[in-house]
Amino acid sequence: MVSAKKSLVGYAFISPWLLGFLAFTAYPFLTSLYLSFTRYNIVQTPVWVGGANYHNLLTGDPLFWKSLGVTFHFALIAVPLGVILGVTLALLLNLDLKGMGVYRTIFFLPSILPTVATSVVFLWLFNPEIGLINRILRAVGVTGPEWLQSPQWALPSLVILSLWAVGGSMVIYLAGLKDIPTHLYEAATIDGATAWQRLRHVTLPMLSPVIFFNLIMGVIGVFQYFTEAYIMTPGGGPEDATHFYAVYLFERAWRYLDMGYASAMAWVLFLVIMVITGLLFWTQRRWVHYEG
């Protein structure tokens, strides 16, 4: 009896969150599933159309496949590079040097800047003629690419931008590195392990749960990649080279008023993310090392 009352107290305390979750997350989440089987423009009553939206998506919409392809392509480049750069930076910033706090702050700073502001600054940096990047390249005798205006370079440009904000995950890696017990390194050193061997056989396995966490979050993040592409390459970029899935979904929902179709796209995206996350969880047994 007492325990039930105690539970009641607990629920009362979390009720603001619980109500918020039910009203603003669970309800829209389930509603969107229903809407994905309807024709709906947010004003008129939804009309049931069965699986037509899914059928059209999978069989009759090249832009759906194109945007999915762009997003996968981006994920395949940006996520691994983000992990490698994040870990590398964390390793460097974990060295025992004077003024390390300053360096850490410098590398972390970009990740706290608003995305929109960063995007606008990078628009200028990437300008092929008057942008800083190509000016520097020109100074060393290299003709830089057309970056965001080029179908080949627009996506890599956005990858570069994503790496600039790697500080967020770097801090988590850094915390992970601090957690690795020093006695492991001492033991390895006594056994005659070189710096590379210590990195390969102590640091990376001990850091693997953190890498796994950042990998999952990174994958989920890139599949919802929107703001930078929307601001820097409006309308899907040159030759739809940066027509990301989330951008196309947004266009379908708010520009073309196809909320049903957009809901179906959202559920396909959800399934894609679930499958990839599931696969990553399946592989983790082989490479993620949990202490103890």
Partner: peptide, 21 residues
């Protein structure tokens, strides 16, 4: 005493929830 023990936090919790609402 036991009653008071769970009653006060419950009241507090409800008050917070009511205020937010």
């Amino acid at each position: 005493e036991e009653n008071a023990g769970w009653f006060r936090p419950l009241l507090r919790g409800l008050a917070v929830a009511a205020a937010i609402a």
